[in-house]
Amino acid sequence: MAEPLIRAASVTRRFGSFTAVDGVSLTVESGEIVGLLGANGAGKTTLIRMILGLLAPSEGDLALFGGEPSRESRARLGYVPQGLGLWDDLTVAENLAFVDEAFGSRVTEVPEALRGSRDSLVGGIGLGRQRQLAFVAAFGHAPELLVLDEPTSGVDPLSRARLWDTIHDSADAGVGVLVTTHYMQEAEQCDRLVLMSQGVAVAEGQLADIVGGTTALAVRTGRWQDAFAALDAAGVLVMLAGTHVRAVDADEARVRAALGGLEADLEAVPATLEEAMVARERASA
């Protein structure tokens, strides 16, 4: 069997007495989209920085294209960091030209969508366009692996859908993708998910495996503030979607008892990714 593009085995990274990543194992194969989920501070970015060789693991083994992260292996990957890694004082075309030259790849054409901003300074164009540019720059040298750290945050839904089309096209062409995200819709598009909480990989599998174990009850009542307060006081994990109260990982009897005399309709609904994440986090705390 071919060596995975990324293989992390029980990787740990400590900063002083703080453990940011704790014994995480993960693989990314060719043509596979692996989603890395978790709240802010869960350790996703630290793990990515170790994979890229920007941080050395305190413990554990890490291989990028079967070896230690190096200049040669980094030439085979495309990376879009959270901060995008673009040069604000260069124009769109100049940014692309620099990246092409650094990777020794052919000149990337400024794509149609960015052509109007070709000669604009990157610092002066909108975040959506900046993200598009970061994608184009990362794809320019035909990488075998894409590492995308929250690549679509701050992007409108249409642009997000387009960016995901690009990710799928790449994966279909055999590119491995490691992507971090907060969004349920994006997690659905991944072949496999790894859920991190407080530095630990708490769940792994497909979206259904991660969300499946979590139940939710929609609590419909005119007095939603009272319902929220009552459930919260009873120690039920309670979330709010608009004016809909949702009790996570609690059975009907417990919710009824917590609500007391308050009249409400209860309906079992599928838990959201966010609810599953919060429930897992609470369980692991």
Binding site: L52, L54, R71, Y79, G83, L84, G85, W87, A102
Partner: peptide
């Protein structure tokens, strides 16, 4: 601006 990290990830010596 985070671009030093980007330079570190590029195949530049």
């Amino acid at each position: 601006s985070g671009t030093l990290e980007q330079l570190a990830v590029m195949p530049l010596r």
